[in-house]
């Protein structure tokens, strides 16, 4: 402790900084871990670039931030919620935002391939960790299974579906992605 005291005494403190909120437009992604944003990884909570790990947040904030033009903000808010509310909806939107980051080249060029792969793994995580996950509409009453959206996203990326999952057509002609055995008529 004594060297610390001496070192501290010789180092002048930085002045305090006024706080004016967080400029989400300027938010940059920090690639901090190989599984960041994929359940059960919680590295985003220790990421100094993640403002949502440093200040109070509310559940509604996810939806406000998710429409923000900077997908990095969306990634961080959904990944933050995923760490303490591990549900498929949070994982899905993490994947969605990672895909947007890649699509909009919102990272360093040499990081984009990694982020692209991360997005694919995030989508896969929805199916493997939260196979029955749903999302609700604005009224909060109508539930939509996330499996179909996830499978569609993987297929759009050209990624294979996880073992046991197939995209099929439902009785009314709708697309359904499922891992349940199907009755063949």
């Amino acid at each position: 402790m004594l060297p610390l005291l001496i070192l501290g005494a010789c180092t002048p403190p930085e002045p305090a900084r006024y706080f004016y909120g967080v400029d989400l437009d300027a938010l940059e992604l920090n690639v901090s871990a190989k599984n960041m944003g994929i359940y059960p990884d919680d590295s985003v909570m220790f990421d100094s670039n993640n403002p949502f790990a440093q200040y109070p947040i509310s559940e509604d904030l996810r939806w406000d931030i998710t429409t923000h033009p900077n997908p990095v903000a969306g990634f961080y808010i959904w990944a933050t919620f995923l760490t303490f509310i591990p549900i498929g909806e949070n994982q899905f939107y993490v994947a969605d935002k990672l895909q947007a980051i890649v699509d909009q080249s919102r990272a360093e060029p040499d990081e984009l391939p990694f982020l692209d792969d991360l997005a694919g793994r995030a989508y896969t995580s929805v199916l493997t960790n939260f196979p029955d996950a749903v999302t609700y509409d604005a009224t909060g009453t109508v539930a939509t299974p996330l499996s179909t959206w996830t499978c569609q996203a993987l297929m759009d990326r050209g990624d294979p579906l996880p073992p046991g999952w197939i995209m099929a057509t439902g009785p009314e002609g709708e697309l359904l992605c499922t891992n349940q055995p199907l009755e063949i008529e």
Binding site: P56, P69, N70
Partner: peptide
């Protein structure tokens, strides 16, 4: 402005 003003608690 794209600024997020966190709640202060």
């Amino acid at each position: 402005s794209g600024i997020w003003y966190p709640s202060i608690v």
